[in-house]
Design a protein around this nucleic acid. Sequence first.
DNA 1: TGGCTGAGTACGGAAATCCAACTCAGTTGG
DNA 2: CCAACTGAGTTGGATTTCCGTACTCAGCCA
Lengths: 147, 147
Amino acid sequence: MAKLPADPCSIARTLGVLGERWTILILREAFFGVSRFAEFRDRLGVAPDVLSDRLATLVEFGVLSREPYREPGARSRFAYRLTPAGRELQVVLSALQQWGDEHLPRPEGPTMLRRVRGTDCPVRVGYLDEQGQEVPLADVAVIPAGA
Amino acid sequence: MAKLPADPCSIARTLGVLGERWTILILREAFFGVSRFAEFRDRLGVAPDVLSDRLATLVEFGVLSREPYREPGARSRFAYRLTPAGRELQVVLSALQQWGDEHLPRPEGPTMLRRVRGTDCPVRVGYLDEQGQEVPLADVAVIPAGA
DNA sequence: TGGCTGAGTACGGAAATCCAACTCAGTTGG
DNA sequence: CCAACTGAGTTGGATTTCCGTACTCAGCCA
């Protein structure tokens, strides 16, 4: 663990946490409410040693918390739950999903939809200015800080 | 190649294209304008066989195009350039960058900023409704299609 | 003709991944 | 109390991927 690169690029540092095989899919399951080791393993088919490593990395960097809990009449277990920082990764997963929906479509259409809770208004991922107004992709500039 | 999983989940399919080591960093360089094999290799320090494989995958799935070109008085070369589909991945990279800026900060602060071209208004990645208005994370529901 | 450069391919060793089997603790059943 | 069961991992070995270096190949240039 402790594989976080000291890279000045935030993308590279984030990939140090999320960039290994299975990590993003583990998070997808976490967003679906999965929290137990065996459930991650069974739903994803990931090897338990890899799962153990990935969960430890995500806990180490504050994406998941590892909470002991005890169901009545059972021994203490661990639940892996999204922290507030982890929940903010939803926009990353949604961006990946949106791109796949559009550019790697299946004939059956997408399996998951992003909607405003309550109303059924579709929701997209995109750029926003400080007033919460959409900024078209073509108007976004990524520039070096201190320039 | 042809590693695209038939997975019904768009996130999994997208990761079939982008999920291997180096791929996202190759795209980061492509957004900076890098287009030549040797320049990707030298800037990233990636092994040439891995680079060759990743570029082929990205071309295969329409993220990059491989265009022969000829500088005057030089032989024909290949340029790898973002396609329109590839350019739409900018929001994915920005989302990763934004999360890293916030949750894996460096004392020196971020190296790259997202701004509206022309004005210097900061730009964030977030959720939008169909009118281009921000939707708070807490109001976004991800639901199965056909439910 | 021989050298230079860009764009790769080839190859051997290192590391990560996968799969199966095993451990360990607490709990339930007999 | 003892045995079996279950969840949460750990361990060991085969396989795949990755890394680094060396090499090739083609066209231009002197």
